[in-house]
Design a protein around this nucleic acid. Structure first.
Lengths: 120, 120
DNA sequence: GGCTCTTGGGTAGACATTCTACGGGAGGGT
DNA sequence: ACCCTCCCGTAGAATGTCTACCCAAGAGCC
């Protein structure tokens, strides 16, 4: 085990960004809860830390909306785990959420670039 | 003027994004509340609609943190208005917030690009 | 003067989502 | 038996946006 020091300077998620992260991660394949969290953390380059207290409510939300389905199974460590998978609606939703995100980033960019970069 | 039809498909702000939008707008010059809102709406290409109920609490927040200062004055329409301006700390903060935003966008990008774009 | 529209500021409460902190069940190693 | 780890789960605090209201005062009209 690696000297896994906690990064104290992780980025906090913006409200509303976790859903698309989960959906996108599940688009790569079926995973259980902790697996999703770890995948997001790794893919983000350890910038995001996914708290369990945010993860499970988010998974419930997505399941309730019909974008993912859950099933009990066994993890690689032989632990009882709940595996999640995208539904057809979920697969469609990934695109919607991604588009929403890109549109938001573009709009933010227009405002932030309006006066040139500060301090440059 | 005004056949100003309301865009029903405006983007909703993500929690935490309004502050940097305000700071950046004020970096371009002193403005009053409504002026800030209009500037953000225009600069964003009419993607954002700044609600008064979000704006004034945000201005209070920023003032309380010492990043902006307010002063009563008179608007171009001869109305009593409260003008806001960046403090030195506020000017420094613009850079911090911008950096935070870019870092977040980069991290999100890594996750969203991890599997290629869905659905083109 | 009186009436209405517009500009500008402000607050209360609903709402959604994340974070902190707690708890529980079960496998693996010693 | 004991402890550590993995995995799921929930309650409540904290934060910030949105909806819906209210108030003050200038401008235009009659």
């Amino acid at each position: 085990m690696s000297t896994q020091e906690p990064h104290s300077d992780r980025i906090e998620l913006l409200q509303g960004t976790l859903d698309v992260l989960i959906l996108k991660t599940l688009a790569l394949g079926r995973r259980h809860g902790q697996g999703i969290a770890r995948a997001i953390e790794e893919t983000s380059g350890d910038e995001f830390l996914i708290d369990h207290g945010s993860l499970y409510p988010a998974l419930k939300r997505l399941e309730k909306r019909g974008w993912i389905v859950a099933e009990w199974g066994v993890s690689a460590n032989n632990r009882r785990a709940r595996f999640y998978e995208l539904t057809a609606a979920g697969r469609a939703r990934v695109g919607v959420e991604e588009a929403r995100w890109h549109r938001l980033v573009a709009a933010m960019g227009r405002v932030l670039d309006a006066g040139g970069s500060a301090g440059g």
